[in-house]
């Protein structure tokens, strides 16, 4: 009995940042790398199932460069005995469809009974990986899950989804299944630094595309439903806090109104 949990290292943009030369992304110098928040919840959901039953294995997998291993270590600090990291330079800027290809191969290799992903990753917010993976595998899927009732061996899982207006939807789905997990489904545990250090002893299997029987061309062929043309920061309106005595404030206000009138 195995649950595979794809997790992702995301880049968080600094307050002051610059764009990359090609204008299609943020210059990585201005990114801070962190674990995707949603994945904390999906991993926790898997760990809770593992802890409630015997013989369940939880395996975190990530597609990312060397330093993405931190994300796996943080997962392993909380539980689980091994992780998988897939990387190849060809995966730089990979589209969600390409990532799905890779993960589908990992599923083929690992033969898990369930796959839990986060609903989305906070850096790109595509929300495609989970559902795409289900499609690639031909598995059923359910998205934005806020409750799971399932134990190893059950042929069906009962799931909850929160809808607008405080409604809750209860679904039943055949297993194996890919679930994308929503924030708030549980309280993710804290990975203590001691845990993270000890997790360094746990094995992480590094796989290349070739190890999975894929090539850069396969990824290109997977393509994507879109491509990024450019990234930019829209002009934002200016706010100003007017300070001073009431008379000064009024004077400044008049000034602004005149400026705007002039501009209009």
């Amino acid at each position: 009995m195995k649950i595979l949990v794809p997790v992702k290292q995301i880049g968080v943009v600094d307050e002051d940042f610059e764009l990359r030369g090609d204008g299609k992304d943020v210059d990585p110098d201005f990114l801070n790398f962190e674990a995707n928040e949603w994945d904390d919840y999906s991993y926790e959901a898997a760990l809770q199932i593992m802890e409630a039953a015997d013989g369940v294995e939880v395996v975190p997998v990530t597609v990312g460069p060397d330093d993405a291993e931190d994300v796996l270590r943080r997962c392993l600090a909380k539980g689980g005995e091994r992780g998988i990291r897939v990387w190849d330079d060809a995966l730089e800027d990979a589209s969600p469809a390409a990532i799905v290809q890779v993960l589908a191969k990992v599923v083929e290799k690992e033969q898990p009974d369930m796959v839990f992903t986060g609903t989305l990753s906070s850096d790109r917010s595509y929300a495609q990986t989970g559902v795409g993976l289900a499609a690639a595998l031909g598995w059923p899927h359910a998205a934005v899950i806020t409750g799971i009732e399932w134990k190893p061996g059950d042929p069906k899982a009962t799931l909850l989804r929160e809808l607008e207006g405080g409604l809750v939807e209860q679904l039943s789905v055949n297993c194996p299944v890919v679930l994308t997990i929503q924030l708030g489904i549980n309280t993710p545990r804290y990975a203590s630094l001691r845990g993270v250090k000890q997790a360094k002893e746990k094995p992480v299997e590094d796989l290349s595309l070739a190890d999975l029987g894929l090539s850069g061309d396969d990824l290109a062929a997977a393509g994507g439903s879109f491509r990024v043309r450019r990234m930019y920061k829209p002009e934002t309106g200016q706010a100003e806090l007017i300070e001073g005595t009431p008379a000064e404030q009024a004077a400044r206000l008049v000034e602004i109104i005149n400026e705007l009138k002039g501009a209009a």
């Binding site: 909380k78 804290y190 203590s192």
Partner: peptide, 15 residues
Amino acid sequence: VDASEMEPSLQKALQ
């Protein structure tokens, strides 16, 4: 802390 039994706000601060 080792068992992760703490307030979410504290967990956040530590993170």
